[in-house]
Simulated scan of single mutants.
Amino acid sequence: MSKHPVLLEISDRIATVTLNDPERRNPVTGNDMIAVLLETFAKVQADPQVSVMILTGADPAFCAGGDIKEMNDPDSVFRKEPLAAAQSYVDGVQRLPQALYNMDIPTIAAVNGPAVGAGCDLTMMCDMRIASEKAKFGEVFLNLGIIPGDAGSWFLLRRLGHQKAADLTFSGRMVGAEEALELGMVLELVPHEKLMGRARERAAVIAAKPPRAVRVAKRLMRNAERMDLPDFLNSAAAYQALMHQTEDHHEAVAAFIEKRKPNFTGR
Results as ranks from 00 to 15, higher is better:
residue 2 S to Q: 12
residue 3 K to C: 11
residue 7 L to N: 11
residue 9 E to F: 08
residue 10 I to M: 10
residue 11 S to W: 04
residue 14 I to E: 08
residue 15 A to Q: 03
residue 17 V to S: 02
residue 21 D to Y: 15
residue 26 N to D: 12
residue 27 P to F: 09
residue 28 V to R: 02
residue 33 M to N: 03
residue 34 I to D: 01
residue 39 E to M: 00
residue 43 K to Y: 00
residue 44 V to S: 02
residue 45 Q to Y: 01
residue 48 P to C: 06
residue 49 Q to P: 00
residue 49 Q to R: 12
residue 52 V to F: 04
residue 59 D to V: 14
residue 60 P to A: 09
residue 69 K to E: 13
residue 70 E to R: 07
residue 80 K to S: 13
residue 83 L to C: 10
residue 88 S to N: 09
residue 88 S to R: 11
residue 93 V to H: 05
residue 95 R to I: 09
residue 99 A to D: 00
residue 102 N to E: 10
residue 104 D to K: 04
residue 106 P to T: 00
residue 108 I to T: 02
residue 108 I to M: 08
residue 120 C to H: 15
residue 120 C to N: 14
residue 120 C to K: 05
residue 121 D to I: 04
residue 121 D to S: 15
residue 122 L to K: 05
residue 125 M to I: 12
residue 130 I to P: 01
residue 131 A to E: 11
residue 133 E to I: 11
residue 134 K to Q: 15
residue 136 K to N: 15
residue 137 F to C: 05
residue 137 F to V: 11
residue 138 G to H: 09
residue 138 G to R: 15
residue 141 F to A: 13
residue 154 W to D: 15
residue 155 F to Q: 01
residue 155 F to K: 02
residue 157 L to C: 08
residue 159 R to E: 04
residue 161 G to L: 00
residue 163 Q to H: 06
residue 166 A to F: 09
residue 168 L to V: 00
residue 170 F to D: 05
residue 174 M to K: 07
residue 177 A to N: 05
residue 179 E to Q: 11
residue 181 L to C: 03
residue 182 E to A: 12
residue 182 E to T: 13
residue 183 L to I: 08
residue 184 G to T: 00
residue 185 M to W: 12
residue 187 L to M: 11
residue 189 L to H: 05
residue 190 V to E: 02
residue 194 K to V: 03
residue 194 K to F: 03
residue 196 M to E: 08
residue 197 G to L: 07
residue 199 A to Q: 03
residue 200 R to G: 10
residue 211 P to D: 01
residue 213 A to D: 11
residue 214 V to N: 05
residue 216 V to M: 12
residue 217 A to P: 05
residue 219 R to A: 08
residue 220 L to Y: 05
residue 223 N to T: 11
residue 227 M to R: 12
residue 236 A to H: 09
residue 237 A to Y: 07
residue 238 A to N: 12
residue 240 Q to C: 13
residue 242 L to V: 15
residue 246 T to V: 05
residue 246 T to G: 03
residue 252 A to F: 04
residue 252 A to M: 08
residue 253 V to P: 04
residue 255 A to T: 01
residue 257 I to L: 15
residue 263 N to T: 10
residue 264 F to N: 03
residue 267 R to C: 07
